[in-house]
Structure formats: C-alpha cells, structure tokens
Design a protein around this nucleic acid. Structure first.
Length: 580
RNA sequence: GGACCCGUAGCUCAGCUGGAUAGAGCGCUGCCCUCCGAAGGCAGAGGCCGAUGGUUCGAAUCCAUUCGGGUCCGCCA
C-alpha cells in the first residue's frame, strides 16, 4: 500500500466534505495537490500543500483553510499530531502502528512490494539497443541496453503492459558494406590471400568467424554464382550470425528482448510506401528545396528539390527529407514506417532509447509520430550520454581503426553483469558516466553496487544466524510493537516511500532513481546495524527477549525484501553473502 | 549560425516535475570494534545552486536573456 496516495485520498475526501458543507466553493482544481514526505523529517511524517494550492481559488487565506483541513485530520484516530506550518503546509504525524503495519504488508507481499496499478495495463513499447547488425556490441551499447531494460522493468512494476523491442537496421548501405566485408573473409576462409582490408570495409576480426562459418557450411558455392546474388546471400548470413552474437551478449547482460523487428522486412512489406501515403493524404508532404545549414555549409552543397515532410507543423525546426535525390527513401522515411507499425500494433505510448549522437533526431521523429498517428501516439526519446571507460582514473584507449575497441562482452566478463547493470544506472541518462574498472569492483562504500549488496547480504546474514529461532514463525503476523527505536522507524519510513518512488520514476521514465533509492535504503540499514555496535540492547538478536528479537527480524526481512524488490527492477541479483 | 543536453560543496553527483533551514559519497578534522561481517557507522568544517532579469504565496526547479562545457547539424545510418 502507498501511504502517501492513501492520505492524498483522505485529504480529497475532507475537501469534498467541506465543499458539501458549503465551506468551500464548488469546482476547485486540485490537480496540484500533493501529499509527500516533508524534506525535513522534523516537520512530521507527511505534509500536504492543499491549503496553499487552493487558498487563492477559494478566496481564503491559506492558513485559515489549512486550519479547516487540519481540524478534520485531527479527528482521525491514527493521526497523532497535525500542525499548520510556514506559509500553510499541513504537517501530520501518524501513529507508529500505521508505519509498523507497512512492515507487515511488505512481509505479506514479498518482492512484489512497490507494484502499482499506475499504468492501468496500458501498452508501452520500449525500443532500445537497436545497434546495427554489423558487429558485436561495444561497451557504450551497454548503457542503452541496461537503461532500456531497467526502464521496461520499472514500467512493468508500475502496471504497464510492456514490450521490449529491438529494431534491426538491416536495410541500409551499411549492411551492403558488411556483405562485401564478409565476402572477403569468406574467400579468405577458402584459402585465398586477401592482404590488407581495403578502406571502406569493416576490418573487425569477428568477420573471420563469419566467413569461416559460411565456408564450413556451404563450401565454395557462393563463388560460383552471380556476385550480386552471392552478396545478398552472404549479407543475410552475416546479419543473422551477428544478430545471434548480439542476442547472446544481451542475454549475458540479463537483457531479454522479446520483439526483433527487421527494417528490411518492413520495407519489403510495403509499409514505407503506405506510411508515406498516409502523410500524403494528410497534406504533409511536398517537394521543396532546403536551406543549407547556417555557418556550416558543406563544400558540395547545391540546392535540390526533394520530397519533404512538413515537420515544422509539429514543432520541428525545418522540414525533413523523405526521399534522396535519386528518388529512394531516406532512413527517416523507414523510421516513420516503423513507428507507425508500432502504433498499429497497439502502442500509443512509445519510448525510444538512443545514443548521444542522435539528439538532433528527436524532434523530427516525434513530429512524425504525431503526424502519422493523428496525434494519438506519444513518443518519448531517452538519450543515453557517453560512457567513459577508465582504468584507475586513466581513460581506456580505444581506436576503431586499430580495432581495439572494448566489447560489451569484455566488460561483462571483467566485472560481471550485476556490476555493469548497477553502475550504468548510477547516473541520470543524460549525464555522461565514468566507468572505472578498478572502482566498480572495489569493495568499499564509494562503490554503490557493493554498498547496496552489502546491506542485503547483512540482512541475509542476520536471518541465517537466527534461523533456529525462526522455525515455525510467521514473520508477517508477529507483533511489531516492540519496534520503537529512531533508526528502526527511519528505516520503516524509508521503505514506505518505495511504492511512491516506483510511480514517480516510472512516470518520469527515470530508472536511475531506483538506484539512488537503494543507496539511501542501504544507508538506513547500515546505520541501524551500527547502533547495535554501540549498544548491545539494540542488536537484532537479543538473547533473553524473544518477542523483541522476532519483531526486529521481521524488520530485517522486510528490508531485505525491499532491497530485493528494487534490485529486481534493475535486473541485479541480490547477494546472499559477499566474500573478499 | 542553429538545435538538443549539462553548469549545485575542493572532486563525482542527487534533488521526489514549484515547497519550509539545498543533500549524499569521495577528500579533510575528530570519534566508535572483548560484541550478529569496521568491507561499516557517528560528528564537524565546506554553498551567492554559472550570471542577470521575470512569473507567484514560494524558484536550484518554470520563462527570457547571457556566459562556460558537451553532442549533433541537407539526401549518411
């Protein structure tokens, strides 16, 4: 249960009563009304801005209105104190029993704690990674992969019907380059001397494997037929081989994407032409000449008439080309068809996760989605900023030309998938992130993964120690009234904010908030733990006090479950124990 | 020239979509292990939230202007 939501409903009910009694005018806009934990805990347990939001509308002084609401709140038994503070905040304190009931609640629902019906089962499509199928994933892809995956889990927890999707760009010029590069390696595998890889082709070693696999399967048959035909076959072989590698790499990262959509198949189905017709019918396509980009005129610029989409009607800065000067479709045209396809599959809410270099593409894509769905579909684009790989504070040198880029697979094997996942989420998506191999595996509190895992492991350790006492005890129904300590209540209150955080993070599409929450929760637990260092009566297990001990163990169990619930969203396995 | 993102403690970053006295980690100072894992915890110092205007009961948060840093900029993908 979400205690803040609950009291928001209570406040709304009070307002309705006041309106019915004629003390408030009808039709007040309560859209901005909130019930939140106050920033400063000394102000109370909950705080509402109701009086300040409504004061002006109701033509009442906020403080006077606050008193009216406060009076009604005081009448409730479980509310132990209500005060009006500052410009009109209403602060309330709740009986400890209310908070303790939250603990019992967690124990009943387990790691589903925090689940919400916010999404009402609405369909959402999260498209992420979508790396070109021309080589294995590199380290930077990992961020988008983790971000998209955690966002999908978060939305699912918040009650959305989520589909994870990957768009395979297998229709552009880059896969033709791939075909020729693979062809070369294929001939090499058949014994030919190929020498230097010519400029313009992909030099990566992984293509040797592709060539060898093809040679092993088909012998030299592709050298004996028409080259165009052979290249098409080799292209398809290479793509499916590389996609298999990509899928494996993603699985190693715990990323399991359900839907893979092929651009080539989409084009072949006629979807692009259909999408363009849709725009045509709406009068959003015309032939025109674009201005050169200011201040950065390409050398070979010459004005050309092109088929353009009227993106400016939907908030973009300029209209965007749909067809190249040779008459073929642009990538943008294919992308429009793809997003229309998603919409037709029932996704009125779409999220794309892109790399930092695609920032300039957002507006036109959003414009296109609006246009093609007649305003019914909404596209949110999340940009993941760069990841700087470091080793002890020194940047890891990478060079595409020398082929010395770090693959995602390398990173996972070096530090483990849980570390990769957690660290990738310790920064907001639009902030660049340093990933230091030395730091992320360090076992100390500067390492957030470790810090959170350590808290969970400590919980499990306590419960293991107490296993004998817990035989036949149902923690969910034990008497929790012995839980009275300050650190205990802090921990309990922190856990109670989890359902609220899930909703806020899901609405904002910001999974990193979960990682920060877990850090805070872990800190509360470590603080509580250390109280037992100073004062033996504050330990979890107190020899001659079974009732107290069992209550505290219930709290420990609830903390472990809350940590696990959050880690589950991040796709990180909660640790049972940590070893040096 | 334009678009988008970022400017918050010495450093790395949060800041709950506008709330009360702006937070955390590192680093610095000083404490806490005969005791469930000190791989932790407690306390202290450290701030004109880049700058200037505006919006309102109230601004780090929203708007405008401006200064720094990053990403990108016909038909590439």
């Amino acid at each position: 249960m979400n205690i803040f939501k609950h009291y928001e409903a209570v406040v709304r009910a009070i307002l309705a009563d006041l309106t019915a009694a004629g003390k408030l005018p009808e039709g007040l806009d309560t859209g901005k009304l909130t019930v939140e934990p106050p920033r400063d805990a000394s102000h109370g347990d909950l705080s509402t801005n109701a009086a300040m939001v409504l004061g002006k509308q109701a033509r009442m002084a906020p403080k006077a209105l606050a008193e009216l609401i406060a009076e009604a709140l005081r009448a409730r038994g479980e509310v132990t104190a209500v005060e009006v503070a500052g410009p009109g905040f209403i602060n309330l304190r709740l009986s400890p029993d209310v908070w303790r009931a939250g603990v019992a609640d967690i124990l009943r629902v387990g790691t589903t704690f925090g689940d919400s019906d916010l999404g009402q089962g609405r369909k959402v499509n999260v498209e992420y990674v979508s790396a070109n199928p021309t080589g294995p994933l590199h380290a930077a892809h990992g961020r988008g992969a983790v971000f998209g995956d955690a966002l999908a889990s978060l939305l699912k927890k918040a009650g959305f019907d989520v589909t994870r999707e990957y768009y395979i760009n297998d229709a552009g010029a880059q896969v033709e380059v791939l075909a020729r590069s693979a062809m070369l390696r294929y001939r090499e595998a058949l014994g030919e001397k190929i020498g230097e890889i010519p400029a313009g082709l992909y030099p990566g070693e992984y293509l040797s494997d592709v060539g060898a696999a093809l040679a092993a399967r088909d012998g030299d048959r592709w050298l004996r037929i028409d080259e165009t035909e052979a290249l098409a076959a080799i292209r398809d072989f290479a793509i499916s081989d590389i996609m298999e590698t990509i899928r494996d790499d993603l699985l190693a990262l715990g990323v399991d994407i359900e839907v893979f959509t092929s651009e080539r198949a989409l084009v072949a189905s006629g979807a692009v032409d259909a999408a363009l017709r849709t725009l045509e019918e709406r009068g959003l396509i015309y032939v025109g000449v674009l201005e050169p980009p200011k201040g950065k005129k390409p050398d070979d610029w010459e004005p050309r008439p092109q088929t353009l989409f009227a993106a400016t009607k939907f908030g973009d800065d300029v209209d965007r080309p749909l067809k190249k000067s040779d008459g073929s479709n642009t990538y943008f045209a294919n992308d429009i068809a793809y997003h229309l396809d998603k919409y037709r599959r029932g996704f009125a809410e779409q999220i794309d996760v892109w790399g930092a270099d695609h920032g300039g593409y957002i507006k036109r894509m959003q414009a296109a989605v609006k246009a093609v769905s007649d305003g019914a579909a909404e596209l949110d684009v999340k940009i993941c900023q760069l990841v700087h790989l470091m080793q002890n504070g020194e940047p890891v040198k990478m060079s595409k030309r020398a082929g010395t880029f770090v693959t995602l697979r390398d990173v996972i094997e070096e530090v483990g998938k849980d570390v990769v996942r957690f660290i990738m989420l310790t920064r907001r998506n639009d902030q660049t992130l340093d990933f230091d191999f030395a730091k992320v595996t360090e076992q100390s509190k500067d390492n957030p993964v470790f810090y959170v895992q350590y808290a969970h492991a400590r919980c499990r350790s306590v419960l293991r120690h107490a296993a004998a006492r817990l035989e036949g005890v149902d923690l969910a129904s034990v008497d929790l009234s012995p839980l009275t300590g300050e650190e205990e209540m802090n921990l309990i209150r922190r856990m109670a904010t989890w359902p609220r955080l899930v909703e806020a993070a899901a609405e904002a599409h910001e999974p990193h908030r979960v990682a920060f929450f877990l850090g805070d929760l872990a800190a509360d637990f470590h603080a509580l733990w250390n109280r037992g260092k100073d004062d033996a009566t504050l330990r979890f297990i107190v020899e001659d006090q079974p009732a107290l001990t069992v209550a505290r163990l219930a709290l420990v169990q609830a903390a472990a479950l809350t940590l696990a619930s959050g880690l589950q969203v991040l796709g990180v396995e909660p640790a049972e124990e940590l070893r040096a």
